[in-house]
Design a protein around this nucleic acid. Structure first.
Lengths: 155, 155
DNA sequence: ACATTCTCTGGGCATATTGTCCACTATTTT
DNA sequence: AAAATAGTGGACAATATGCCCAGAGAATGT
């Protein structure tokens, strides 16, 4: 969908101060309240804004270790049954099917390196998983963000 | 930090219906408004809830292609200057430094496979980047989520 | 066993925000 | 030129917020 400058300013504003309401937004952006309301409705309706859920920091819950685990899947068993099993492991935060030498990529967290072993064991135990390969995230110099993308998507 | 059952129910409730306010939460959870307020303040103060920013779907903005790009960095140049340059590319959504044969892992999006080439070219052009390897995400059977983790962290 | 400290409760109050209308104007589109 | 679209600014009742309070219960330390 096409996004104009007001949309970008609105998203940027909400990104920086999410707790402010529609009225406050309209004041900051120097537009009428109805306009802000209409823009937000439109962004939500078109799926650009998928929600306003609370963002959780796994590290604050004690899950300090982040790792990316790639999986090779036995050919006969499709991806989906494997993904369904992976979804049952709370430490698995997301799963993608991918091109290349491996079949799937998961982001997982754990309480420690030793705990990561436990999580990986659970992944290996999933029926259809042949082999895994893990890399640990040592640092995250650029945490997940979409604001620059929204700005780039403008117009 | 330690999270109890009420915290989990509160986070779960907000995750499902983020637009409801404190008062509505207190009604749904059968507790006093002040309690909900105190819990939210505590979760935010301890860094468990990092924010309530709008969640943006890159696909809805036309960025249908997601890829994971691993980088090898020239030894002399540290990670940080490279990360700083990568941060300037809007399509780079996150960057991690990692263990293993490669040095960094980026999540990038693009408008198409051809557009992905353009983005990767930009990454390769970053001073210090020696080599890249990309895998494209074909599907995302488990999109990013933290709710199961929060439930698991309960104690 | 007792005192202290937390946490939760349930209430009150003034103020701010929301949802929903409306009529009017400016800007595109056809 | 006519019609559709998006924004404005204002109104209204209903609701939510921030902030205060006193008291009940539970957990904690001495």
């Amino acid at each position: 969908m096409t996004v104009d400058q007001l949309d970008v300013r609105l998203v940027a504003l909400l990104e920086e101060e999410p707790r402010i309401g529609v009225l406050e937004c309209s004041r900051r952006l120097n537009v009428a309240r109805g306009t802000v309301q209409a823009r937000l409705d439109r962004l939500a309706a078109r799926g650009v804004i998928t929600g306003y859920g609370p963002q959780i920091d796994p590290a604050a819950l004690g899950f300090d270790v982040t790792a990316f685990v790639t999986l090779q899947i036995r050919q006969v068993s499709g991806h989906d049954p494997v993904a369904d099993r992976l979804a049952l492991i709370p430490e698995v935060l997301e799963v993608h099917t991918i091109t290349g030498g491996h079949d799937m990529l998961c982001r997982v967290v754990a309480r420690s390196n030793a705990d990561l072993q436990r999580v990986i064991d659970q992944i290996v135990d999933v029926h259809g998983v042949v082999r895994t390969e893990s890399v640990i995230a040592l640092d995250t110099p650029v945490p997940y963000r979409t604001l620059p993308l929204v700005k780039a998507a403008q117009r």
